[in-house]
Design a protein around this nucleic acid. Structure first.
Lengths: 342, 342
DNA sequence: CTTTAACGCTAAATCGATTTAGCAATTTTC
DNA sequence: GAAAATTGCTAAATCGATTTAGCGTTAAAG
């Protein structure tokens, strides 16, 4: 039998027995309360050394049961495989969470209210310590009840304006406005905006940025909305039809990266040349846009900054160092490439 | 004070008290042991109804402490944000895991042995029930010690041949061989192969598939290896230099999707036309390849099949229904697009 | 009519930590 | 030198489940 199998997992009781002291003392020392509880330096050292030697790790379940804390953060995104942004955020917050002794479980809402509510209910009963959420519309009540219980919540990507809750979002309105103005400056006159059929904050703001630019320059608005839950094929066709019906459109803005992908397919299917027939800008950067021929101008989110704000907000809230509500709005960056000027 | 805040969390003790029965009985009923323990149907019904009514959910920590099971599966990938494949797998296994009462925590190894070992050690001490791992080279001992303790492990994407362990991989050799033969059939004679500087199973097999085809047709081999941990820029430059030094290369195979992306950049930087100057095939499908101009031929992994095998293997092993080792090898599919024939 | 078996349920131990309350010995205070 | 305070440590309760061993009652067996 291998040694690994022989060594029953150690408990704090074993440590106490081995050293001839009480488990209380061991616990105090391990929790850094030696000073506070007036344990002698000599004993403290001895215990710490022994614990290190035998590589003792306290049982998380027992700790969790007693303290009510699981040391687990839930990351709830729309779809971890759909939007590269979410996978990147997942990657970036993972390490810092681990460094602070937290693990991360993830789940995907598919941007469906019912699914999000179900998931929150599921996890609430399991003493998850904190929630990082891209909220679909309509889950305000669930979130509020988390907040009422004092459970840290950080909303990301979008905000629920009726809630007084931590969030990290980007300047959707201004950055979209800047992008549309960039098109206008480059001489485009009939600028279309393709977005989701959704009232979510970030979408509303992006549309707002478009409308502001269009209005200020007295241009015609061309807005097309597509369904998040419709198939890719359907949405590609919808965008293609929209372009066929509005042949005077000379520039187009896609308000998310996946809409951008659908849009490029639609444009390709109509054999339109970019930017000669139609200029293109999309929200969210990704390889496809960088390496497309021609390369696609984008409004890029500052993923590392977003992520570090998210995890810092969460860890601070968990520490109870910081009980303030923080509403963080970060600028996005227009990256001009070949697709947006002649 | 809101109602939500008033309702202290229920325990099994409360249920017992409320119904005037012992907690033992409640526990038996909730664990589906009513029949086995000869609890009357009437009482069983009554308890279940009450539990439903008050929406009682057992405390996972207490359950975990008592049973030693956490109901948590660890998904350890190279980098959840780098390789779209992993994010897709993450998405697909998530739902089934939830349906079976498991949650998933994730972590990224960056394909580094030390980091993987550190993570496994970290999680071992926390009673994670099972591990789904894309193993870097050199972590055989850690994995073996998990296996020795009877903890279910499923290796994915690649295999550690010295271990007798569940795994789900694809037919790397055959599928690469088929792709290279496709190039040969289309008249290409000087076919290059760009891969990772790594001895991992899946990479070795892909290289093997290339070499087999080249040898069988008596062609020259052109193999370029790039570093996983080097910067993208560096690798793009390396590939470009390689192509400049071997101007007779008329086709090129990239052995992973991210190498494919670097390769396309290199080709673009040299102003080579695809497929006229150089034909291209890459491993792993993604939007970029589908919508690139010209579209890129790929060896596509059957992501849904892979994922469902992974989660089924894991859940069966956790159930202890199935203590057999399963070694699953799935075929990959050559998707011919514009980039691989004149 | 006694013994055995089946029935329906429960008391109490247990998992491994945290934390409150407090004890005995020593030192300080006045 | 007695009372008070400090020091250094610990016993036992607790968190909320699971599970073993067993108890009293009724029905079947002989």
């Amino acid at each position: 039998m291998p040694a690994s199998k022989m060594s029953k997992k150690l408990s704090i009781r074993d440590i106490g027995k081995e050293l001839g002291i009480s488990i209380t003392t061991v616990s105090f020392i391990l929790n850094g309360k030696a000073k506070e509880k007036r344990i002698s330096e000599a004993l403290t050292e001895k215990v710490l050394k022994f614990v290190e030697e035998v590589n003792f790790k306290p049982n998380m379940m027992a700790q969790g049961l007693r303290t009510g804390k699981s040391k687990i953060i839930c990351l709830m995104v729309e779809d971890i495989s759909n939007n590269l942004l979410f996978a990147q955020v997942a990657r970036l917050i993972e390490e810092e969470a681990h460094n602070s002794g937290y693990r991360i479980i993830y789940c995907s809402t598919d941007n469906k209210k019912e699914k999000a509510i179900e998931l929150i209910r599921l996890f609430r009963d399991r003493s998850i310590d904190g929630y990082i959420i891209t909220p679909p519309e309509g889950i305000e009540k669930e979130i509020q009840s988390l907040l009422d219980e004092g459970i840290p919540v950080v909303l990301i990507d979008r905000n629920l304006p009726s809630l007084d809750c931590n969030h990290v979002v980007i300047e959707n309105l201004n950055s979209t406005n800047e992008a549309i103005n960039h098109l206008i400056k480059n001489g485009f006159k009939n600028i279309a905006f393709v977005t989701l059929d959704s009232d979510q904050m970030q979408m509303a703001d992006r549309l707002g940025g478009y409308q502001k630019a269009i209005t200020e320059h007295g241009l015609n608005a061309y807005v097309k909305k597509v369904g998040f839950h419709d198939s890719s094929e359907q949405n590609v066709n919808e965008i293609a039809s929209f372009l066929k019906e509005n042949k005077n459109i000379d520039a187009i803005f896609f308000s998310t990266n996946y809409i951008g992908v659908w849009g490029l397919q639609a444009i390709k299917s109509l054999n339109l040349r970019i930017p000669d027939d139609i200029a293109v800008i999309s929200f969210d950067d990704q390889d496809l846009f960088k390496f497309y021929s021609p390369s696609i101008t984008v409004v890029a989110q500052p993923v590392p900054e977003i992520s570090s704000h998210i995890i810092r907000l969460m860890l601070n809230a968990l520490d109870e160092k910081d009980s303030e509500i923080h509403k963080i709005v970060l600028p996005a960056k227009l990256i001009v490439r070949e697709s947006s000027s002649l």
